[in-house]
Design a protein around this nucleic acid. Structure first.
Length: 613
RNA sequence: GGUUCCGUAGCUCAGUUGGAUAGAGCAACAGCCUUCUAAGCUGUGGGCCACUGGUUCGAAUCCAGUCGGAAUCACCA
């Protein structure tokens, strides 16, 4: 996005650089600041002046609440607002009129401004900033374990991570999408051991199971036998805690982990074989979800990292060693606890590895920021991670940002793999497709579709519904998913917005319309039309906010607002019946612009919009 | 018990840095297809913004406390 130099004629030393995206708002803010300075001799920073959208029930486009100025003006709020309004009207071309209600100054933007806005911005990448060639932002997301298939919680993670990455790109950031695959450890050995013991050589091919589901099956099987063994041991009078540690199964799994770490050939072969199945399964799910990665880190390569960092921390007396040789970070002075970094036997823990991988990826990319999309159950972990890195003196510690998102809850509570209450990702996507198919059939939507196009449409709508359902919720909040009430296709949903887009496209096809973006300035538009323009005008600033807050929800709710407004227009105002060619052209341009922005916004969420549905 | 996050309509959610009479969708009810796609539009009903106090011209929003829920405080990841 080009940075534009701009200055006020009446206030020449306001020669400010800023992005074009919210130029109008900035101009108005500056003008208000100048007004109160000249009228009441008070200094006010333009950025401290709150400019809001005028509420629908009042006339105007932007509103300034003048209450903060009445002390200085020593006049009634109404008078103060009128005086400021007059100042703005005479000094700012874009503002053609104003009205005052109580202490609220409602400004009306000139038609010329809106028309120029449409004429010069109706382009494909409207609202996007040009990507600058600087140090990239890393976004880590997904980060699955290779012992079980993905579930609804992972879906939220993947959709969030992918979308946030796209939103950052739209904000001009260079982005690297990173996945850190947890492919080793005791939980992986559990699946391996169970398969070895009870699998009879079963493979994805022989079983017809997707590789990740096959591995998950044996993970569950391990747990079943493990619990049975413990139950039996308890019956024989052994304490539960003791039984859990003495169980022959867990000992075998631990033994397998030791063999893996010793690079025992047979163990490594088995590990590679089973992980291979899982990756194939994951790839399929990722593809259906439409997410991708620029770089995949494997924990089997990184799990030994971090020890060197810890050693250095010891030498520098930042970390402490206890008598059993374990190494700790004492964070009690910062209100946190002591954190273990190396066990007495010198092996590392999760935190140690994360210290190491943070340094690794910083060095790999010279990242300007490292975002971790990880559930809010790990808030403490990331607080500690940042703090330790800071204590160890890494300048980039502050560039770590934990994008913490809330859990997906079921009516029965949290999802638990072992209790079989998880909503499987693959199953859910398939169910959504079936629902989309049934719905389309019921509505007679696909009667003239080729089978391939119809199939594509079910997928598009199914994913639109699913992705929108998840992304419209503020990331940091927990969200509820009720499997018995399938995700809606009407109302505040993805398909609603997709439908609006398809409708516009149909309109444009029928119009056999040739692009004429040079709108005639003499047209007059109706309230509904102006409202659509105003919403479109907001898009660049919504992208910025979504980037700053790392929140696809802002984009999602914005797209709904625009689609809803457009549908109202579509219902009430006919396009083809309009005899005035300039007006007809304007409505088509407005429709096309709306379709563009809907497509763009949904694109940031990873949602396709169909040409017809 | 300590720390953090959350509490808005029957349900699911908006409400960005304090601003006008708190908004959508779903569900319920009543309308709108010889007219650009009815997966749409219009209307009705539905609220002590958990509670109490404070800050100020003004609080769902900021502060403190209370109550309710969640997460976390592992030599698991």
């Amino acid at each position: 996005m080009a940075i534009r130099v701009f200055y006020f004629t009446y206030f020449p030393y306001f020669c400010i650089l800023f992005s074009i995206t919210n130029m109008l708002e900035l101009k108005i803010s500056h003008c208000v600041a100048e007004a109160v300075s000249q009228l009441y001799a008070i200094k006010m920073e333009a950025k401290n002046i709150t400019l809001q959208k005028t509420r629908k029930e009042f006339e105007g486009d932007f509103t300034v609440a003048v209450f903060p100025f009445v002390k200085a003006s020593r006049k009634a709020p109404e008078t103060t607002a009128s005086e400021i309004g007059n100042f703005i009207k005479t000094n700012l071309d874009e503002v053609e009129d104003f009205n005052v209600i109580k202490g609220f100054l409602n400004l009306q933007i000139s038609k010329t401004y809106w028309i120029n806005f449409i004429n010069s911005n109706n382009i494909d990448n409207f609202g996007f900033k040009e990507i600058k060639d600087t140090n990239p932002v890393l976004v880590e997301y997904s980060s699955p374990n290779t012992n079980k298939p993905l579930h609804l919680g992972h879906i939220r993670n993947n959709l969030l991570g992918w979308s946030v990455a796209e939103i950052l790109k739209a904000n001009g950031k260079q982005v690297v999408k990173v996945n850190l695959v947890n492919d080793r450890g005791i939980h992986i050995c559990k699946s391996m051991l169970a398969w070895q013991k009870w699998g009879n050589g079963e493979t994805p091919e022989t079983s017809g199971l997707k590789g990740d589901h096959l591995a998950g099956k044996y993970y569950v099987l391990f747990d079943k036998y493990y619990r049975a063994e413990i139950t039996e041991m308890i019956a024989n009078g052994i304490e539960k805690e003791v039984a859990e540690k003495q169980s022959s199964l867990i000992k075998e799994a631990q033994d397998m982990l030791r063999k893996w770490e010793a690079k025992d050939k047979a163990t490594i072969d088995l590990w590679e074989k089973m992980n291979g199945w899982v990756y194939k399964g994951f790839d399929e799910t990722y593809k259906r979800l439409g997410v991708d990665f620029d770089k995949i880190y494997y924990e089997s390569n990184t799990y030994l990292l971090g020890k060197r960092i810890v050693d250095k921390g010891l030498t520098d007396n930042i970390l402490i060693k206890k008598e059993d040789n374990s190494v700790w970070a004492d964070l009690t002075a910062d209100g946190l606890d002591e954190k273990l970094l190396l066990r007495g036997d010198g092996t590392s823990v999760y935190m140690t590895q994360d210290l190491g991988t943070a340094e690794l990826r910083f060095n790999d990319y010279q990242a300007s920021q490292m975002i971790y999309v990880v559930g809010n159950e790990q808030n403490y972990h990331f607080d500690v991670l940042k703090l330790i890195l800071k204590k160890l003196g890494y300048s980039w510690a502050d560039s770590i940002y934990h994008l913490s998102y809330g859990m997906v809850e079921l009516p029965a509570g949290k999802m638990k793999s072992r209790e079989g209450t998880v909503v499987d990702a693959d199953d859910l996507i398939s169910e959504m497709e079936t629902t989309a198919y049934e719905k389309a059939l019921e509505l007679g939507k696909i009667d003239d579709f080729e089978s391939e196009e119809a199939k594509q449409l079910y997928y598009t709508i199914a994913m639109g519904a699913l992705k929108y359902f998840i992304l419209k919720v503020d990331p940091q909040k927990n969200m509820m998913f009720n499997p018995s009430e399938s995700i809606d296709f009407n109302g505040h949903t993805g398909p609603f917005i997709q439908y609006t887009h398809a409708r516009i496209k149909s309109l444009l096809r029928k119009a056999d319309w040739k692009v004429n973006c040079d709108l005639n300035e003499n047209i007059s538009f109706l309230t509904k039309e102006k409202e659509i323009i105003r919403i479109i005008h907001e898009y660049p600033s919504i992208i910025m906010q979504a980037g700053e807050n790392r929140s696809p929800a802002l984009i999602a709710n914005y797209a709904f607002e625009l689609a809803k407004e457009y549908n109202g227009f579509y219902q009430e105002i006919p396009v083809f019946k309009e005899e005035n060619e300039d007006l007809k052209n304007f409505r088509l341009v407005l429709s096309a612009f709306t379709a563009n922005v809907l497509k763009s916004a949904m694109g940031l969420l990873g949602i396709q919009v169909p040409e017809r549905m």
